[in-house]
Amino acid sequence: MKFKVILSFLLLTTCLVAFSQEKPSGKPKQHDMTVNEKGLIKISVMYPYAEGKTFNMEYYETRHMPMMAGFIGSNLVKYTIEKGLSGRAPEDPLPFMAIGVFYVKSLSEYRAAVAPHINEILADIVKYTNATPTIFVSEVVK
């Protein structure tokens, strides 16, 4: 009897562990937003707002950023997408329509991964914006 109880417990525990693990969905991996970012390289791609400038957030979120994540590969820790709402105060002009940020382990690996695809990347930018992005590369200190 004791053996059956232990066996049942082990079977139940195994099932709970197996069914509680994340299953592959075939969708692109969502990047963990709780990652400790200290020491990572941060590539911020900022799209300035100006009269007549446009930005297609849906395309950027569903096509461009996943494409970039694919190019960057395992060097990518996570990426974020920000939609501009206002400047410093509500009446201030919007400084940026959007900002895309890549957190990577190595800047040289990032550059090596993106370089062969630069023409494809530049051709894709015009599909979602007519603004010229500003790029800021930094190291996360804290």
Rank of each mutant, 00 (worst) to 15 (best):
M1W: 06
K4H: 03
V5A: 11
I6P: 00
I6H: 00
F9Y: 06
F9G: 02
F9E: 00
L10N: 05
L11A: 11
T14M: 07
C15W: 04
L16P: 00
A18L: 12
K23M: 05
K23G: 00
P24Q: 12
P24Y: 07
P24G: 07
K27Y: 12
Q30L: 03
Q30G: 02
Q30I: 06
H31V: 09
D32Q: 10
M33A: 14
V35C: 08
V35F: 15
N36R: 08
N36E: 12
E37I: 08
E37D: 11
E37V: 07
K38D: 14
G39F: 07
L40A: 05
I41A: 05
I43D: 14
I43E: 11
V45D: 04
M46I: 07
A50I: 12
E51K: 15
G52F: 03
G52C: 02
G52W: 03
T54F: 01
N56L: 02
N56E: 14
M57A: 13
Y60M: 09
T62P: 04
T62H: 13
R63Y: 05
H64C: 09
H64W: 12
P66M: 13
P66L: 13
M68D: 04
A69V: 08
G70V: 06
G70A: 09
G73L: 12
G73R: 03
G73F: 09
S74M: 04
S74I: 03
N75Y: 01
L76T: 06
Y79C: 03
Y79T: 08
Y79I: 01
Y79R: 12
T80W: 01
I81S: 14
E82H: 15
E82Y: 15
K83I: 04
L85M: 15
L85I: 15
G87N: 14
A89W: 08
A89G: 12
P90S: 09
P90A: 15
E91T: 15
E91A: 13
D92L: 01
P93A: 15
P93G: 11
L94P: 00
L94G: 01
F96H: 11
F96P: 01
M97S: 04
A98L: 04
I99D: 05
I99H: 05
G100M: 07
Y103F: 15
Y103I: 08
V104R: 01
K105C: 04
K105T: 11
L107I: 08
L107M: 13
S108N: 12
E109S: 10
R111Q: 13
R111I: 00
R111S: 09
A112E: 13
A113E: 07
A115C: 05
A115T: 13
I118V: 14
E120L: 14
I121S: 07
D124V: 09
I125K: 09
K127M: 09
K127P: 01
Y128I: 01
T132G: 01
T134P: 00
I135E: 05
I135G: 01
I135W: 08
F136W: 04
F136T: 12
V137S: 07
V137R: 04
S138L: 01
S138D: 10
E139L: 06
E139G: 08
V140D: 00
